[in-house]
Structures are given as structure tokens and as C-alpha cells.
């Protein structure tokens, strides 16, 4: 076990850089470094690289980072690795908002932010408000109850989404379904500009609140007694998480389990001190989703598997492993 947390961060950064450099070269069409660097050679490959692969890898990285720190934040607030925006229904709320937008189809943007992102944000907010109210009305609501509530919220929004699909025409319905599986194949640079503000604001807030997250990990009563203004801090954290989750989901769909696996493994690697944990989640979460996306391109090429399918295939067993582990010793984080 490496003791020095900064060394761990540097090592993972190097790994992430390697992943970032190699991933755009891999795919249906393998691209060599040479064909990108040499301006006279192979224009098509250069185009594929710069116009398609690079934005795709970048957005996968950004999304992975954002999902990982959102998951980390929820896990710390609820003191349980199973409690993430995805399992508690925030993602399905965002998905509902985004699907509604596809159906309503009014193309608009507010202050340059795409309508789909705004709708996803509002959907995420609905879920968060439900979770928030639930955790408020009954103090000391157990995480088990919260997770069941999350299941209910998921069902609720899934049926809404089904209904929207039902009343949509075939094209709309297909585009909603494809988007629900999560993936990066249709993204371009404009999508990055679209969601970057959400993610930058959200993650900056969480980085600034890492000491508060450390205290929350000790339990709410202790956090309060140490001087944390609990409601205020929790509201800000909920807000920051909704920003990031909805930003990601509106563009790439509800990609599940990244926000559960990455922060849990990061905790095992670097410990619970959020001043380091946040950064490991950013680096590891980004690299992890880029890897998953690369897998999705090559596993059964030329067919691309939606990346959400891959993360769910990994995440399902992981979820069950966590459940078994936690029922053994009552400690999930």
C-alpha cells in the first residue's frame, strides 16, 4: 500500500494521461500517431481523430469525473456507498426531464445553455427535492429506506419516460431509447462547451467543501458540533451535485454505476480524506469512463455497445457485492 497520498495522485494522473493519449487512437479505424502529426498524410484519419474521437474522449473523461465526484458526495452525505445520484433516482429524474424535452421538441436555449440540459436539471431537482424532503420529515431515516425510496423514484420516472415514448412518434421514441442507454457517439465540441460550465461550477464547489465532507463522514451530529452549518452545506452540496449530474445526463444519457464504483474504489485506494479523494475521483472517474467507452467501441466492432450498458454490466455485480459486504458488518463506506 502506498502511504503517500500525493504520490498516488501523481501515479493516477500519469495513468489517466496515458489513457487520454491512447484512447482516441483506438476504434473501428486504428489511427497511428504519425497520421495525426504529419499534415500531408491521410486527411480522413486526421478528421476522424480531431472531429470525432478527441471530443468523444474528452466528454467521456469530463462525464466520468463529474459522475464520480457526484457519487462521492452522495456517499459521504449519506455515509453509505450504495447511496448515489443514480441509485437514489436523481439520474432518472434528469432522464425524465431530458426525454420530455425530446418529446416537446421546443428548441431553445437559456443564456446559451441547451434546453435539454435545462430540462434535465429541472428533472434532477425534482428527484433531489423528493429525497431531501424524505430525509427531512423523518430524522434519522435509514439509508435502506432512502434506497427503497430511490427505487420508487426510479420506477416513477421510468414509467413517465415509457409514457413519453408511447405517445411519441417512432423517430422520437428511438432517439429517446438510444439516449437512455447512454453513450458518446453523437457528441461534438459544442456539447463539451454546453456542459462544461455545469461541471466546473459543481466540482469547484465540492472541492471547496472537502473539509466539510470530511466532517459529514463522521455523522451529522458530530459535524454540527464541530461548527458545520449543516442545512446550508447540504443544500449547497445537493445543488452542486444536481448541476453536474444533469449536465452530464442531458448530453450522454443516464450512465449508471460509475458514481458508485469509482468513489468506492478510490476510497479504498487513497482513504477518506476528501481533500485527496476528490482529486482521485476526478482523475480515476475520467479515465475509467474513457476506458469503458473505448471498450464499447472495440468489444464487438464494428457494432458499438452503448457505454451505459457496459457500466451497468460492471456495476450490477459490484452493487450486489457491496450489499453483501455491508450486510456482513453494517459498514458500507
Amino acid at each position: 500500500m502506498i502511504k503517500n497520498k500525493k504520490v498516488i495522485l501523481v501515479l493516477f494522473s500519469l495513468l489517466a494521461l496515458a489513457v487520454l493519449a491512447l484512447a482516441p487512437l483506438i476504434g473501428m479505424e486504428t489511427i497511428s500517431f504519425n497520421s495525426i502529426l504529419n499534415p500531408n498524410l491521410d486527411n480522413i484519419k486526421r478528421d476522424i481523430f480531431w472531429r470525432i474521437r478527441v471530443p468523444r474522449v474528452l466528454i467521456a473523461f469530463i462525464s466520468g469525473s463529474a459522475l464520480a465526484i457526484s457519487g462521492m458526495t452522495f456517499q459521504s452525505m449519506f455515509r453509505n456507498s450504495l447511496a448515489t445520484p443514480f441509485t437514489l433516482g436523481v439520474s432518472s429524474g434528469a432522464a425524465f426531464g431530458a426525454a420530455l424535452y425530446v418529446k416537446v421538441g421546443i428548441l431553445f436555449s437559456i443564456l446559451g445553455v441547451a434546453g435539454q440540459t435545462v430540462f434535465a436539471f429541472l428533472g434532477a431537482l425534482i428527484s433531489i427535492v423528493i429525497i431531501y424532503v424524505l430525509s427531512k420529515i423523518k430524522k434519522g431515516f435509514s439509508v435502506g429506506t432512502m434506497l427503497l425510496a430511490g427505487v420508487a423514484i426510479n420506477f416513477f420516472f421510468s414509467s413517465f419516460i415509457l409514457f413519453i415514448q408511447f405517445i411519441s412518434d417512432f423517430t422520437q421514441s428511438f432517439s429517446i431509447m438510444r439516449w437512455l442507454m447512454g453513450g458518446f457517439e453523437i457528441v461534438g465540441y459544442s456539447d463539451i462547451y454546453n456542459i462544461l460550465p455545469f461541471i466546473l461550477v459543481g466540482s469547484t464547489i465540492i472541492i471547496f467543501l472537502s473539509t466539510e465532507l470530511n466532517l459529514l463522514a463522521l455523522g451529522e451530529d458530530i459535524a454540527i458540533s464541530r461548527g458545520v452549518s449543516l442545512s446550508k452545506i447540504k443544500n449547497i452540496l445537493f445543488f452542486a451535485t444536481s448541476l453536474m449530474v444533469s449536465g452530464v445526463i442531458s448530453v450522454v444519457g443516464p450512465i449508471g454505476f460509475v458514481g458508485m464504483m469509482v468513489p468506492h474504489i478510490s476510497r479504498l485506494i487513497i482513504g477518506a480524506d476528501h481533500r485527496y479523494l476528490v482529486f482521485l475521483n476526478i482523475i480515476f472517474g475520467g479515465a475509467f469512463l474513457v476506458l469503458c467507452d473505448t471498450l464499447s467501441r472495440v468489444l464487438i466492432a464494428p457494432v458499438e455497445i452503448p457505454v451505459g450498458v457496459i457500466t451497468a454490466l460492471l456495476g450490477g455485480p459490484f452493487f450486489i457485492w457491496l450489499l453483501i459486504k455491508s450486510s456482513n458488518n453494517n459498514q458500507v463506506i
Binding site: 476510497r267 480524506d273 463506506i333
Partner: peptide, 8 residues
């Protein structure tokens, strides 16, 4: 006194 997890 509680059996809570204190990860520090």
C-alpha cells in the same frame, strides 16, 4: 458512544 464508522 456509537459503533459508527470513523474513516480517519
Amino acid at each position: 458512544i456509537s459503533e459508527n464508522n470513523f474513516p480517519f
